[in-house]
Computed example of a mutant assay.
Amino acid sequence: MESQPMPVRRQAPTVARRRLAAEMLELRTTSGRSREAVSSDTGLSQGALHRIETAKTTPQAGTLNHLMDYYGVTDPEQRAAMQELRKRSKQLKWLELFEGGDLPDSYRTLASFEADAIRISDYESLFIPGLLQTRAYTETIIRTLLPEAPHEEIEQRLDIRMRRQETLTKPHPASLWAILDEAAMRRRVGGNQIYLDQLEHLLAAGQRPNITIQVIPFSTGAHLGMPGAFATLEFPEPDPPLVYMENAGGGLFVETDSEIAWYRNSFLRLAAEALSPQDTTTWIERAASAG
């Protein structure tokens, strides 16, 4: 594996880049021009246009001005707003420190979106949510799932996980609504002490005004969340929400309105079947006291 060339690392898309991409796509479709026509008229390749319109890359200032000229954008305020989006569309500064590692692009993307989110609704069936994990719990999971990973990669992933959690503690934090299957709560990841420390961490987190935690007990029986975990991330208007799902093969983002609506409704149904936040606190306290 070491003999293979390192893949080119793309910047993790941000909410600002998603909005800029949507604006650029809207300008082109409103003009009635195909990518082929725009490419022929402006000299910008169709591939470059596709990457800009799908938030895979951020255009240079000159390229953005050239395209706005071409599409007839003359309003100074609109032009300034789009250039501001371009400036803000770079990935997180702290995430840049971890460039060059073996982290999946989807994981970097999730970190950048979480930093911009105002609401996160996370259902987990087997793990404590990443934003609520202790460092020891996280390390155990990483070492179990990546038994051959070098020490440097494990430390990198740990540091990123801890930095991701800052979205819940910054001056204007995101709100987190976490629903956990009892299976995630019962599994003694890392042994008894790490398990108990994780429960205490959840109790402390649940006292914060921006965090809501609910447990779906085994007694509920079959429920809608059994197929797997998912999280919905919401952003300030006008940025659309998205859904993130993760499995052994990597992460997947869902952005279509109909699918997002399905996951939102599913989350609300899971919340209705779960213990209330107050009863969840009592449940966790009993689990911790039982050792």
Rank of each mutant, 00 (worst) to 15 (best):
Q4V: 09
P5N: 13
V8M: 10
R10F: 11
A12H: 04
P13L: 14
P13N: 12
V15D: 01
R17C: 11
R19Q: 15
E23R: 06
L25R: 12
L25G: 07
T29K: 06
S31L: 08
R33P: 06
E36G: 14
S39I: 05
D41N: 11
G43K: 02
G43F: 05
G43V: 01
S45A: 09
Q46F: 04
G47F: 03
A48N: 11
A48I: 03
H50C: 12
R51D: 13
E53K: 07
E53L: 06
T54W: 03
A55V: 08
K56E: 14
Q60H: 02
A61S: 02
T63A: 04
L64T: 01
N65W: 05
D69Y: 04
V73G: 05
T74Q: 13
E77I: 06
Q78N: 06
A81K: 05
M82G: 05
M82N: 08
E84W: 06
R88L: 14
K90T: 13
Q91D: 13
L92Q: 14
K93M: 12
K93F: 15
W94D: 07
F98T: 01
G101N: 08
L103A: 11
L103S: 14
S106I: 11
T109P: 04
A111S: 15
S112Q: 05
E114F: 04
E114H: 07
I120S: 03
I120C: 06
S121A: 11
Y123L: 00
E124F: 02
E124T: 12
S125M: 09
L126D: 14
L126Q: 15
A136K: 05
T138D: 02
E139K: 02
E139L: 00
T140N: 08
I141G: 00
I142L: 14
I142M: 13
T144L: 09
L146M: 14
P147V: 06
P147C: 10
A149R: 05
A149N: 03
A149G: 05
P150G: 12
H151G: 08
E152S: 09
E152H: 08
Q156R: 15
D159M: 08
I160N: 07
I160A: 09
R161W: 09
M162G: 03
R163E: 12
L168F: 09
K170R: 13
A174C: 10
A174D: 08
L176Q: 00
W177H: 15
A183W: 07
A184N: 07
R187G: 04
H201P: 00
Q207F: 03
R208F: 02
I211K: 03
I211N: 01
V215D: 02
I216T: 07
P217I: 00
A222M: 13
M226K: 05
P227S: 02
G228H: 00
A229T: 11
F230G: 04
A231Q: 08
A231S: 12
A231H: 02
F235V: 11
D239H: 07
P240L: 10
P241H: 03
V243A: 00
N247C: 07
G249H: 13
F253I: 10
V254E: 01
D257S: 13
E259L: 10
E259K: 07
A261M: 06
W262D: 15
W262F: 14
R264C: 00
S266R: 13
R269K: 13
A274E: 06
D279A: 07
T280H: 10
T281P: 03
T281F: 04
T281M: 10
W283Y: 15
I284N: 00
G291M: 02
